[in-house]
């Protein structure tokens, strides 16, 4: 079964590689990372920080954009183009198709992130910015965030149109980064609002957990146990989303 999932993934990866959007975003990201060299020339003082700031933010942002805008089309495109008919009629369970598509995009994101990280590493090397272990920890968690967002996009694309999926996924992304603050704010509200916000906080993905950019820039330590917990958080969450997507997908009629 794993071999079959893999062949769907590779097919999906191939398909993703044909997305023009992917290259546009990638080029844009590399330009952003490269432009940090220029910006660091006109800044005063700490240009290390500027390069790291812009570099990590670009990798994160463009990764998220790819995850969302390619992710929403993963399933809905196959349904729209009826290619799914030939796959579901084969002796593979539907969840395998879903997993295949998911890992296809994860592979795509991996390749993309690798390119962007490589670009950033070159910039860091040229500009003599020290590269720490924390930098790679941060990249790892960015990738974990991308995996969670991809799973969110996949979940939505199993039951709504591409446009709606994009809106919902963006919404989750924004709320996912704000829910921690909302929870803090809620302390000053009445109990019902607090309860609602707490539910939102615990049930929706808390994407701030994957944000180590501040740590990298200020050289704050991120302990191994924190890292392990965060990784298990991300993986469990992605697993939960995929399971939900699988349940919905299993019951779906392909019209």
């Amino acid at each position: 079964m794993i071999a079959r999932i893999l062949s769907i993934s590779l097919n999906s990866f191939r398909e993703n590689l044909r997305e023009k959007l992917l290259y546009n975003l990638l080029i844009f990201a590399l330009l952003m990372i490269g432009s940090s060299i220029l910006l660091s020339r006109i800044t005063i003082g700490d240009y290390h920080r500027l390069i790291l700031d812009i570099g990590l933010a670009s990798i994160n942002l463009f990764g998220v954009l790819i995850a969302i805008f390619v992710g929403i089309g993963l399933v809905s495109k196959e349904i729209d183009r009826k290619t799914i008919y030939t796959i579901v009629s084969k002796p593979i369970p539907r969840y395998a198709f879903l997993l295949g598509k998911y890992f296809g995009l994860v592979i795509t994101l991996l390749a993309n992130t690798a390119v962007m990280v490589l670009g950033l590493l070159v910039v860091l090397y040229v500009m003599d910015v020290p590269i720490t272990g924390l930098f790679f920890q941060s990249i790892g968690l960015i990738f974990l965030e991308l995996m969670v967002i991809t799973a969110v996009a996949l979940l939505f694309s199993t039951f709504t149109s591409s446009t709606l999926s994009a809106i919902f996924t963006l919404g989750i992304y924004v709320i996912g980064h704000m829910s921690g603050d909302l929870k803090e704010l809620a302390k000053k509200l009445d109990e019902i609002s607090q309860a609602i916000i707490n539910v939102v906080y615990y049930v929706l993905p808390n994407l701030e957990r994957f944000n180590l950019k501040g740590h990298v820039i200020h050289g704050l330590d991120f302990g191994a146990s924190d890292m392990a917990l965060t990784i298990s958080y991300g993986l469990t969450y992605a697993g939960l989303l995929l399971l939900l997507a699988g349940i919905i997908f299993q019951r779906r009629d392909f019209q």
Binding site: D181, E208, G214, L220, S232, Y233
Partner: peptide
């Protein structure tokens, strides 16, 4: 997921991140 969240909350000060 919720458990890990709670655990993480005890662990790292969410505050630090916010200040950052």
């Amino acid at each position: 997921v919720v458990l890990i969240q709670l655990k993480l909350e005890q662990h790292s000060g969410g505050r630090i991140a916010k200040l950052e």
